[in-house]
């Protein structure tokens, strides 16, 4: 029954995509919008192949792609490695919260571009400033998800564990951490999303490669077909990344929604 429902949902999504492409083709073939503003799907396809074989600015599309993905993954992994323990500990140990929370709460609402130029001044125009920008964008969602997860943990889990003989350290690792895992995954998904939306900003300045840079550079020369390829590549990658995280989540947090 559930499989049938999932298949139906997939078919609807497929049909929606097909309708969008048909509409797009119709609008461009009837020349209702200038090809400079909206290239045809065929043109975008040809540009995609061209970018794969010839490249953009001397760099092949997959190389741009790997550079962007590398920056994103390094930043997100750093945010996961630092944000998860920091968020969990902040929720569990009031002193840690008192130290860390104001800093994260301060960073959280600031648009990353506001401090990007400062990061470039401090860290240079290389990879460090770009990865740091993405890291700072990805950290708050993970931290907050973990913090909230600990705060809302069923108090009886902790009381029950202590009455079974667990000490504070054991409760943290054997109860708090697994109980928080469903929300940790939600935080990771949000963090990947936020980092992803920041990637174009990160590659906007002082870069010469990367999908974000390619989009920005192509916009200077009104190469909308290249921009479309970049946007589609980013969009598809975002969907695939989210799907992969969900896949891992379903395996690790097998009890989610069932208890």
């Amino acid at each position: 029954m559930q499989k049938k429902r999932r298949l139906r949902s997939f078919n609807i999504s497929l049909a929606t995509t097909a309708v969008i492409i048909i509409l797009w083709s119709t609008v461009t073939s009837l020349k209702l919008i200038s090809p400079v503003l909206l290239p045809s799907p065929l043109r975008v396809g040809q540009t995609f192949i061209n970018l794969c074989l010839v490249g953009y600015n001397g760099t092949l599309l997959y190389q741009h792609y790997l550079i962007t993905l590398g920056r994103l993954l390094v930043a997100v992994v750093l945010a996961i490695v630092i944000g998860i323990p920091l968020g969990l500990l902040s929720g569990y140990v009031p002193t840690v919260k008192a130290v860390v929370d104001p800093i994260v709460q301060f960073i959280r609402p600031i648009p990353p571009l506001a401090y990007y130029t400062l990061l470039i001044l401090w860290l240079g125009i290389g990879e460090t400033s770009k990865v740091t920008l993405l890291f700072l964008a990805a950290l708050p969602p993970i931290y907050l998800a973990c913090f909230d997860a600990v705060v809302k943990i069923n108090r009886e889990y902790i009381r029950g564990a202590s009455s079974l003989g667990a000490d504070q350290r054991q409760i943290f690792f054997h109860v708090v951490f697994p109980a928080a895992l469903p929300d940790v995954f939600t935080g990771v998904r949000s963090a990947v999303g936020v980092a992803y939306t920041t990637i174009v900003s990160a590659e906007m300045f002082a870069a010469s490669a990367g999908i974000g840079w390619m989009i920005v550079d192509a916009s200077h020369y009104l190469k909308s077909d290249v921009m479309f390829v970049g946007i589609i590549v980013l969009g598809v990658t975002g969907v695939v990344l989210d799907w992969m995280i969900k896949l891992v989540e379903n395996r690790v947090v097998h009890w989610r929604g069932k208890f």
Binding site: N154, Y157, V175, P178, A179, V253, H254, F259
Partner: peptide, 8 residues
């Protein structure tokens, strides 16, 4: 009452 068993 709600048992507080660990679902993981």
């Amino acid at each position: 009452q709600d048992m507080a068993l660990f679902p993981w």
